Simulated assay, not measured.
Amino acid sequence: MARSSARDTQNKRYFGLEVPFNAAMPGGRVRDFCEFSERRMEFFKHTIEESSLSTRSMDRLAKVARTVAMNQKLFDQKDVIQGVESPMVGMKVMKYGINSRLTHGMVDGIGGSFELDYSDYGDQKRWIDGIRIVVDPDLPESEISLSGDSGSVWINRATSKAVALHFAGEDGLGPTAEYALAQSMPRVFSLLGVGII
């Protein structure tokens, strides 16, 4: 029920606009779709004025905020994300990805460096730091990461705190290679110079 609710919400929000999901919002229209309270809009404007972030970075931040807000509705809880904490090996986590939907995982590596091939997208192979999340053996799923899931927030199931921002997945080498890659949420917040209101 929660999965179709999230899909229905996005279908209504983007009906007739050729925008399939939050991450695909056109940059110049992000604020049209991201509903901010008056207090949060003032904070957002202040952050833009006081930071060295580009407008594109602020749009991306708003998209992440939109996804977090959807996750709160999705899990049928008033306040799903209770803060931010650092990931730890063995931590049980969950996320809602646009294509993989609700998935569960377990952090099995932090501080790693992973080679990603962006040559199909006009770039090159790059080494990117991050954390690795594998299938939770207690809640096994065939897929925990699919194309379109980037920007999903991994949440510690025990504390409801955001621990990582999803950015990539497995390399397709077989069923034992199922994994997700993410950036530590405290690191993301630090690089962006933002925090939870």
Score class of each variant (00 low, 15 high):
residue 163 V to H: 09
residue 102 L to Y: 05
residue 156 N to D: 09
residue 135 V to R: 06
residue 132 R to L: 08
residue 140 P to E: 05
residue 159 T to R: 02
residue 155 I to F: 05
residue 139 L to P: 06
residue 132 R to V: 09
residue 124 Q to S: 07
residue 117 D to G: 06
residue 168 A to D: 06
residue 142 S to H: 03
residue 145 S to H: 06
residue 174 G to E: 08
residue 116 L to E: 14
residue 130 G to E: 03
residue 120 D to R: 09
residue 124 Q to T: 10
residue 102 L to C: 15
residue 159 T to I: 03
residue 104 H to I: 14
residue 145 S to D: 04
residue 166 H to A: 01
residue 152 S to D: 06
residue 107 V to D: 04
residue 112 G to M: 09
residue 153 V to R: 07
residue 175 P to Y: 10
residue 110 I to A: 07
residue 105 G to Y: 12
residue 105 G to H: 07
residue 176 T to S: 14
residue 106 M to N: 10
residue 143 E to I: 13
residue 158 A to E: 09
residue 104 H to M: 14
residue 117 D to I: 04
residue 159 T to F: 03
residue 159 T to G: 00
residue 131 I to Q: 02
residue 106 M to T: 15
residue 110 I to R: 03
residue 116 L to Y: 14
residue 160 S to D: 11
residue 159 T to D: 00
residue 144 I to D: 02
residue 153 V to F: 04
residue 162 A to I: 11
residue 130 G to F: 00
residue 170 E to T: 06
residue 104 H to Q: 09
residue 164 A to R: 02
residue 118 Y to R: 08
residue 125 K to P: 09
residue 162 A to K: 11
residue 174 G to T: 11
residue 133 I to S: 03
residue 136 D to N: 10
residue 115 E to S: 07
residue 123 D to E: 15
residue 147 S to V: 11
residue 103 T to E: 04
residue 116 L to I: 12
residue 153 V to Q: 02
residue 150 S to R: 04
residue 142 S to F: 04
residue 151 G to F: 00
residue 103 T to H: 00
residue 110 I to Q: 05
residue 164 A to S: 03
residue 166 H to W: 00
residue 111 G to L: 12
residue 160 S to T: 14
residue 123 D to I: 15
residue 132 R to W: 11
residue 127 W to Y: 10
residue 117 D to V: 06
residue 171 D to K: 06
residue 127 W to F: 10
residue 173 L to M: 14
residue 142 S to I: 03
residue 161 K to M: 05
residue 157 R to N: 12
residue 110 I to Y: 05
residue 106 M to S: 12
residue 166 H to G: 00
residue 124 Q to N: 12
residue 112 G to K: 13
residue 119 S to D: 05
residue 108 D to I: 09
residue 132 R to S: 06
residue 158 A to L: 11
residue 167 F to V: 04
residue 151 G to Q: 03
residue 118 Y to A: 11
residue 176 T to A: 12
residue 116 L to F: 13
residue 135 V to S: 08
